[in-house]
Design a protein around this nucleic acid. Structure first.
Lengths: 336, 336
DNA sequence: TTGTATGCGTTATCAC
DNA sequence: GTGATAACGCATACAA
């Protein structure tokens, strides 16, 4: 607070009380006479007193704020998750600080360090597609920082996690393509080391197995940058088309929109012939690709659940030892 | 910082120095012997010392963080602006705190108050479409909080502002429709009290005048919620179609995507016959509506410029008295 | 060049 | 029930 505001001291002086009395009245904590409490509250209201959270943070050694790390806020899925996070956090008087990793490990680490040093009380994080080494998170966790992972989670890290039922979502989407008569189904997906990539690949494979369709590795294309660079997608499309796929199952929001763009740009004549099913939370996309089937993730809910878990860790009297991995169901929205 | 960390005091004790010496060495501020400075820095590095920004904020009465208020982060334009803001802020060692108003005046005010009480050093804000009374901002400004408006700016507020050349962008877009042979051009736009709405309406009108086309108020539809609710857009489309427009000039990103969706949903048979030109920073949209022409705003740059202005205000020795309104050019991206 | 003392605004531990 | 006082971690005016 760089500019003038009234403090507890001001109120105390004005009312002829001590700062501790004022503090108690404001916090309604220790026993205090109704009378003086009312007096203080009334005066505080009058001068529009706002407690200085910086001072409070320093004293209490906590900040009432939680950090969020996502790869991109310009991603329908993540912005919906963030809305879910905010809905719970604000309700419980926590502030949120959003940071973007832009799918870069270096940036992710930088942001986390920054947040940690800025005294966040807990961290909600979806790993970047580059991230493989999470020792820096382990250190922070060991030092006492509560962490909850969502969507993109590590395997070997004992804490709460919230994910979608990626296996089932992928299975359903692939099955839908198969039931529509498709037989050569490609799979366009994220970086190989993301948890969601692995889980979704398994769901895709399982559907193929069920319908006795051979799994062909060359039909699977990985995009390291999650479709942020159009060149990456155009390259994938270019490699895929000679294999004559009649369907594509796509593993993320950005990839789905990006792939449709790449198809229309590089091969408009075949674009409409290929059925697409993809993880996407964007309403827009569905409309334009008539045969697009989307796997909707409960993004808002994922944000809510993750935040509730995090806050429970933050406010727990002693370290949590029982962890859970919440798995939320996806919804298949079929189009024509 | 809720968990263990080494402080200046720890370093001082370990090195047999005083806290002030350590502080000075770390901040490299007062004259201090090269020797002790090196000693301190080396040790600080060794124990991975991180200054507690909370304590620093309390002491210096500033937080090295700037607040951002936008209506929605899930808006291509705003997320690009935010990226621009971050690029400058991080470079100058400021942290950013993002809040969403969701086009609600109440939420906007709540967020601003929250940020202000959390000791932001400055505020970057694009007003919500509901906002009419900005006295609360005036109060904060009077108390010393530097504020820079971008995109959606108030008329009667003397401070730095950064906007796009909305008049010219709208003029160009409308003219483009006219030159394509359109004569009945509707205008779909935001809430009437937004600055961008007014400026864009003027550009639209000016283009009509130039080509001797009569301005018909019934062809202009305002959307209070900026296209966040699909019902709102469907209603607008429903009212517009009986007037048989052959072109629509749309005033924002969300409205453009939303309008195309509404058209395809409610009147797929005429959707492709209507030429659309709209303010949108989404690459996706262009692809799907073949005749869509977009007015691209320099969003990233807008974020950068606004942030530079804000930081200059924050770091100015005395109150700024000369204000500027930066006007950035838009770019018309024509399709076929 | 370095050390001592003070205060930022708040909460907590004592006394009274 | 209330008031003095210390402390959170840091920066700085002042003294040495």
């Amino acid at each position: 607070m760089r500019f003038e505001t009234s403090t507890i001291k001001d109120i105390a002086k004005a009312l002829g009380l001590s700062t501790s009395t004022v503090s108690r009245a404001l916090r309604d904590r220790y026993e205090i006479s109704e009378e003086t409490k009312k007096l203080v509250l009334a005066y505080a209201e009058k001068v529009n007193y706002r407690a200085n959270p910086i001072a409070r943070s320093l004293k209490e050694r906590r900040s009432y704020s939680i950090g969020i790390i996502v790869s991109e806020i310009a991603n329908n899925f993540f912005s919906q998750v963030i809305n879910g996070i905010e809905s719970i956090a604000y309700d419980k008087d926590y502030h949120v600080i959003i940071s973007q990793s832009h799918e870069s490990y270096k940036q992710e680490k930088l942001n986390v360090d920054h947040l940690a040093s800025r005294s966040i009380d807990g961290l909600l994080i979806a790993l970047s597609s580059e991230t493989q080494d999470i020792d820096y998170l382990r250190d922070l966790y060991a030092k006492g920082l509560p962490i909850v992972f969502f969507d993109r989670v590590p395997e070997d890290f004992e804490t709460h996690k919230v994910i979608a039922n990626n296996f089932k979502g992928s299975f359903d989407a692939t099955e839908h393509l198969i039931l529509s008569g498709k037989r050569t189904i490609a799979h366009l997906t994220n970086s190989e080391n993301l948890s969601i990539t692995k889980e979704r690949l398994e769901g895709y494979k399982a559907a193929l197995v069920k319908y006795h369709i051979e799994f062909r590795p060359e039909l699977v294309k990985y995009c390291q940058h999650g479709g942020m660079h159009s060149a990456e997608l155009e390259q994938a499309v270019k490699e895929l088309l000679p294999l004559k796929p009649d369907g594509i199952f796509i593993s993320s929001d950005r990839l789905t929109t990006g792939c449709i763009m790449a198809l229309k740009k590089t091969n408009p004549e075949v674009a409409h012939k290929i059925a697409i099913a993809g993880f996407t939370n964007s309403n827009l996309v569905e409309l334009f690709s008539p045969s697009l089937t989307s796997v909707k993730q409960p993004a808002f809910e994922m944000g809510q659940v993750a935040t509730e878990l995090l806050i429970s860790m933050i406010e727990a009297k002693r370290p949590v030892t029982e962890f859970e991995t919440k798995v939320l169901d996806t919804e298949l929205v079929k189009k024509r």
